[in-house]
Computed example of a mutant assay.
Amino acid sequence: MCKVHHTADRTGKPDRLKIASLHRLVYPARPAQRRCVPIARKYADRVGWQHSQPQRGKAMNKQELVDAVAAKTSSSKAAAGEAIDAFIGTVTAAVTKGDTVQLIGFGSFSTGARAARVGRNPSTGAEIQIPAAKTVKFTAGKAFKDAVNGA
Score class of each variant (00 low, 15 high):
H23Y: 08
F106V: 07
D99Y: 01
A93G: 06
A151W: 00
G12P: 10
K18T: 03
Q33M: 13
A140S: 10
S52G: 08
A147W: 14
L103H: 01
P38R: 05
K58V: 12
R117L: 11
C36M: 14
G119L: 01
S108G: 11
I128T: 04
Q33P: 07
V26K: 06
H23S: 09
E64S: 12
I19D: 03
F106W: 06
V47A: 03
K72H: 04
A113W: 07
A44L: 05
G150F: 04
P14H: 06
A32W: 09
G105T: 05
A29R: 15
V37G: 04
A8N: 13
K58Y: 03
D45W: 07
A71F: 03
L65N: 00
Q50M: 05
H51L: 15
I128N: 00
A151I: 06
A20K: 14
W49I: 06
R56E: 07
A71Y: 05
K137R: 07
P38G: 12
V37A: 09
G105K: 04
A126D: 15
K18N: 03
A59V: 14
K3T: 09
K72D: 09
K142C: 05
A115D: 12
T100N: 09
I128L: 10
T90S: 12
A80K: 01
T73L: 12
V136C: 10
A8P: 06
V101F: 01
S74R: 13
L65M: 08
E82K: 11
A29H: 13
T11M: 04
A44M: 10
A8E: 15
G119Q: 03
F138D: 07
R46H: 11
T7M: 15
R120Y: 08
G112H: 05
R35A: 15
F144G: 02
P54K: 09
